[in-house]
Amino acid sequence: MTDVLTNRRTLLIAASVAVVPGLFVPARAQGLAPTPSMRGGANNYLPGAPIVDRIGGGGFWMTGSVRRVGDGVPLAGQRIQIWAHTTEGHERDPHSHGATLTDANGVFRLEMPQIVPAFGQPHGHLAYDSGDFETVFLRPVMRSARDTSLHADFVLVPV
């Protein structure tokens, strides 16, 4: 029943868009959707992680990008905070936390110790929490515990 209704509604919207082009276009239909925070993303977050060249001894790479919602413009100089359970410490240890800034292309890359499985999954945490855009917490999971890098993309909404 719900499916029928949804289908009818979808059809109606599709039909109206087709009949009157340009009249009914959702604001972000063609743009980049914002990245929602992930469940558990903020766990063991310590605000104000310092910007560092590298967390601990390194050997593992956390990479990603930061763009603006809608038009997808890369955002330079954005501070991304990173933490994880690694070979050098638990998530809650302050020395497991660090931050880095995006470059001119909105790309960030921070070397850190190898992430190891903790609480059932090999995963990392990332935060955008600088105030210019809405706060986003991510918790990507590695495909394999043997991976030596992890990637996460942010699409931020201006405050």
């Binding site: 992930m38 469940r39 558990g40 993303g41 903020a42 766990n43 063991n44 638990h90 998530e91 809650r92 903790a118 609480f119 059932g120 999954q121 918790r139």
Partner: peptide, 18 residues
């Protein structure tokens, strides 16, 4: 070891299915 992870689990809002 990690209070927020256990609180999430007990409240059935953990990202981990197990």
């Amino acid at each position: 070891t990690s209070p927020p992870d256990v609180i999430d689990a007990l409240l059935f809002r953990s990202p981990t299915p197990f």
